[in-house]
Write a protein that binds this DNA or RNA. Structure first.
Lengths: 241, 241
DNA sequence: GAGTGAAACATGTATATACATGCCATGTCA
DNA sequence: TGACATGGCATGTATATACATGTTTCACTC
């Protein structure tokens, strides 16, 4: 009666999956202490070296934190990729000081079968997709337009999210064990709809961030249009291990 | 008479250092085959598990490529960070097909003590810095302006580089064992000089990539101005291990 | 009560051993 | 000459064992 899966993957992979599942389900919360290696040896029925390898790899991947003589702990959500701070515009406005006000308007929110434009983004073509359109304000001036295509099945409680208080990219980052990320950044003249929503002249430039996230075979896409005049920028910092 | 260092680090670390040293010195060239695990066991005097761990970690770090039943090989220089394909505009133009021509003009190339603007970039303030200004053309139309501040001491043979044939970011990526990378992307109206060099109206938008690379304490900076009308974009794809 | 030392316990490393798995070259047989 | 089997060799995994190293706890001593 083992808690490990019965797939064909190696044992140490099963141990890793077991640990990740417990973290993902919330059973082992952030900074919580894991059972010791010997506990896992007893409860999982594998050798200590196997457990040790699994925990060591999870540590080097950033999921765990280990302290010799003390124990193993769930690491805070890691910066899984670069560009994660990108477009967290709510925080940016907040950091500018007290006299600025951040605001958000949710313009549209529908669930619908994937149309052509979404199929082009390689969405799972069967299930409906949550499409939402959000405008970010600073002092009642629109500075950013976010267009999201997210498969709700992928993200737990995605539909319950409060878009006004939580940065969406940050939330997605937290919840999706992403397997691949693609960023495309360009500067394009605003189309009619973008110009209307951002209250800007129609041919003025938008800074566009197209972000595509894979989790297994499913894809989530976020397009962010930023009014150039707003002088926001997108940044990232990467520190290799 | 072991080939391993006599520092206090663990054995498997010494094996890793030994392998990396042989790769770095060029003794084991790219795609060359390494001695087998058993060979290394005999020549280094450590157990196979220790050798195996070292090689496994180097593989997961992207330095080696291993094929079961075949052997271990020196991996091609890894994509050390995301955004590496960024701005490799020479390749992008070449990939568009035969009817396009890529061109480059080196406008300015001086070595000078770091002025204020460079000190602001946290350069080593003592040594002179190579400053160069390069314009990329497609079919005689300027599409991109690159402004580089590089410490020549950092990059071997940097001054001998042929800017017209080799993508600079690619070259820097190859040569510098970077410890940290920062990207800042913004869309800004072109200033007088940028407008003149890119032959564009002065207030039209530029897509600007500011790239700052640390190697230890020294810093290299590349600013890239792309004319929005050229419809080039900056992209990256990240695949976590 | 304060300080000390040792036990208990955690992770970290190193080794020997065994077997599994995959690739390739060699040799045999048709 | 071609197809196939096989042995050799490479990496991959799993285990038991031993010891090293760092932290906490707790009992004992002064």
């Amino acid at each position: 009666m083992s808690a490990l899966s019965d797939t064909a993957s190696p044992l140490y992979e099963k141990v890793k999956d077991f640990v990740l599942a417990n973290i993902g389900s919330g059973k082992w919360a952030q900074n919580a202490r894991l059972p010791s290696e010997n506990d896992l040896v007893n409860s999982l029925g594998v050798s200590r070296m196997t457990v040790h390898r699994a925990l060591r790899e999870l540590t080097s991947e950033g999921h765990l934190r280990r302290v010799q003589g003390v124990g193993t702990f769930v690491a805070p959500p890691k910066a899984q990729s670069t560009l994660i701070e990108v477009s967290n515009i709510i925080n940016e406005i907040r950091d500018r000081g007290g006299k600025h006000r951040a605001g958000v308007i949710l313009l549209e929110r529908i669930e619908h079968p994937a149309p052509a434009i979404i199929r082009a983004f390689e969405f799972d073509q069967v299930k409906p997709v949550d499409h939402s359109l959000v405008v970010h304000f600073e002092n009642d001036v629109p500075v950013q337009l976010e267009e999201r295509y997210v498969n709700p099945a992928l993200v737990p409680h995605y539909l319950d999210q409060d878009f006004t208080s939580i940065a969406t990219l940050e939330y997605l980052q937290r919840c999706t064990p992403l397997t691949e990320v693609e960023h495309l950044i360009s500067a394009l003249p605003a189309g009619p709809e973008q110009a209307r929503l951002l209250q800007m002249p129609e041919r003025d430039s938008c800074l566009v961030l197209h972000r595509k996230t894979w989790t297994g075979a499913t894809v989530a896409t976020v397009n962010t249009f930023t009014h150039v005049g707003s002088r926001y920028s997108l940044g990232s910092r990467y520190r290799p291990t």
